[in-house]
Amino acid sequence: MSTIFLIIIVAAFINNAVLVQCYGICPFLGVSKKMGNALGMGLAVTLVMAITCLVTFPIYNYVLIPLGLEFLEIIVFIFVIAALVQMLEKVIKKFMPPLYNAMGIYLPLITTNCAVLGVAETVMDTTAMETIFHLSQGQFNVGHAVIYGIFLGLGFTLAICLMSGLRDKVDKLEMSKHLKGFPITMATASFMAMAFYVFALVRI
């Protein structure tokens, strides 16, 4: 139980996807103008991350490693993620039309989101994960990987929603026209990252 709590804290705050590890900056800057859109994007990323961890972790550890094909990991992962996103879009469109209307348009964008490939690459390295979470060898399993994926996604959602709230105010300020847009958004993100830097000092 304490391991799961540790994974949640590490994934959501200490290794926050956007503000600590710099994953998924494109949607963070691009889709954070309105709170509704930001929430939709964040939840879509969370869903895809959870499913990606569920699928790529077994593929890497139980298929690629026994066959000695570790070097194919990048190609396999990107194809699995692309196929998953396509299938997920079809399924959601068919069975959950309101959800599709809320976050369907963000799903195709997620294929080329580094956060998703990044979580697949982080989670599959079981030895590194076991040293972080004080587990003995072979104890880090699919369940842990999926929890890590979900909470990394929720950390991303938290960051992007906070950003959209701040941008509501910041974009209305008067400033030099060269500072408008990306520069001032990045300066705002810098202050948010400073706040999250505190979590790096937590000893686990």
């Binding site: 590890q21 958004t185 810098s190």
Partner: peptide, 20 residues
């Protein structure tokens, strides 16, 4: 500050503004 992510955001943002 400049070594971690927060500084990266600020330096990058200001450089975009300056370049533009």
């Amino acid at each position: 500050y400049f070594g971690n992510t927060a500084g990266a955001f600020l330096v990058y943002g200001l450089m975009i503004a300056g370049f533009n």
